[in-house]
Amino acid sequence: MSEALEHSDAPSRLGPWLAAARLGWAIESNWADPFVFMTYQIVRPLFGALILVVMFKIVTGQPTSSAVFGQMYVGNAFFILVVQCVSCIGLVIFDDRERYQMLRYIYLAPIGLGAYLAARGMARLAATTVSILFTLAVGAWLFGLRYHLSPADLPYFSLILILGGIATLAMGIMLGGSTMLMAQNGWSMPEGVSGVLYLFCGAVFSIDILPWPFSAVARLIPWTYWLEGIRRSLLGSGYVASLAGLTNAQILLRLGIGTAGTVAVAWLTLRFAEYRAVATGKLDEKTDH
C-alpha cells in the first residue's frame, strides 16, 4: 500500500480537527494583535451590555437590582456566543473562497467541510467565552448581580452549555454551508439570522410577548431552552412564565431534542449545499461581488 493511503485511510480524527481549530484561533486572535483583540473581545460586548442597561432603566424605570434586569443581562451576555459563532462560521466559506482562495484545497482534503467549519467555530467559541465571563463579572461588580451556581448545579449547567454550544455550531454550519451557493454579497445573512434568533429565543424579551406564530417558533428552537436553563442555573429562577411549569430535566430534554433537530437540519443543509455547489461549479468560483 502506498504511503499516502497509509496516512489517509485511517487519519487521526483529532489531528485535522485541531489543525483547523488552530487556524481559526490564528485568524480570530491575530486580526490585529493580542492586545487589540482582547480589547475588542471585552469592550464591544461590554458596551453592548451597557446600552442594554441604559435602555432598561429608561424604558422600565426599574432599578438594576430587580429580578427582570438580571434575567435580561444574563440572557444578553450569553447570546453573544450565538452572534459570534454563527457570524464567524457563516463567513468562513466567503473568506476562504474569496479572500484566501483556499476553499477548494480544504474541500479536497479528507478532513471534511463539516468538521472544518465546526473547528473554525470552536475557535471563536473559545474566544467568546472570555467575553461572556467578563460581561458576567461586570454585571456582578457594577450592577450587583448575584449568581447562585452551586456545585450541585454544575453538571446540569455544563450539559446546558454543551448542548447550546453544539446547537450554535450546527446553526453556523447550516448557514456556512448555504453560503457555498451565494455570491460574496450574501455576507450579511448570518448576522441577519442571529438577529432573528435574538428576538425569538428570549435573550432580552420574554417569548411570552411574541404573537402566535413567532412564539411557536420560539418554542421550537433550542436557544430558548438553552437560555432558560442558564438563567435557572445562574440566577435560581427562569425568565419565561410559560416555561415555568417545566422541570429542569424537561428544559434539558427540550434543549436536547432541539439541538438534535438543528444538527440534523444542518447536516442535510450542508450535504445539499455541497452537492449543488459541486453540480453547478460554484464551490470554488470566486464571485467578486
Partner: peptide, 9 residues
C-alpha cells in the same frame, strides 16, 4: 503542517 494534518500525515 496544517494541510498535512488535514491529510492525516
Amino acid at each position: 503542517w496544517m494541510f498535512a494534518q488535514f491529510y492525516g500525515v
